Amino acid sequence: MSISQRLAELGLELPEVAAPVASYIPAKIHGDLVWTSGQLPFVAGELPASGKVGTDVDAEAAQDLARICALNAIAAAAAAVGGVDRLTGVFKVTGFVASEPSFTGQPGVINGASNLLGELFGEAGAHSRSAVGVPVLPLDSAVEVEVAFTFA
């Protein structure tokens, strides 16, 4: 089943690629990999939540935000390679969680991104990953995710 078919089966649509908020491009190709810039959880150009996970945003809501980040990363990668069905797998995920100092659930938050990628790519969605707690993210986002995809 193609990625576009799997997206439709899950009731998901790729969003428009978010416009960069600084001096960078949304995705860059190197060899058979397309690396995305960090993707914030924009929905229709807006952040649905902001602040620190553990105080302003609970872990479950942050996991949903990470899922949105992954969907935005797919859109950025697909635009770079000429279509979502050219994406063949996931190589690496890096997730950043704006965390209050005692919050240690960053891996669970970034599971929102990893689980979506697994749902879409199956075994080819298995990836290496980092989940990092940080004091603040751009635009006071609670979560940011970058992904390296394989493509053909």
Rank of each mutant, 00 (worst) to 15 (best):
T94P: 07
A19G: 11
A113W: 06
L117I: 03
S102D: 09
A78E: 01
V21H: 11
P41Y: 00
R129Y: 03
L116Q: 12
I29Y: 08
S4R: 00
G108H: 04
A78F: 01
A76M: 02
A79L: 13
A22N: 06
F91E: 05
A66G: 04
C69L: 08
G31R: 11
L33E: 12
V84E: 05
P41V: 05
F121T: 00
V109I: 14
S130N: 10
E16F: 10
G51N: 12
G105C: 07
E100M: 02
P26F: 08
I3R: 04
A62I: 07
V57Y: 09
L40R: 07
G118K: 04
V132W: 10
H30P: 10
P107I: 01
A8N: 12
I68C: 03
A79H: 07
V43L: 15
D64E: 13
F42A: 05
G82Y: 11
L47A: 15
Q106T: 08
S128A: 15
G108R: 04
A126V: 14
A49Y: 14
A66M: 09
Y24D: 07
D58E: 08
F103S: 03
A44D: 13
A124V: 06
E16D: 10
T104I: 15
N72L: 10
G51K: 13
A22R: 08
V84P: 01
P107W: 01
A98H: 01
G11P: 09
T104N: 13
V109W: 07
A22M: 13
Q106I: 02
A18K: 12
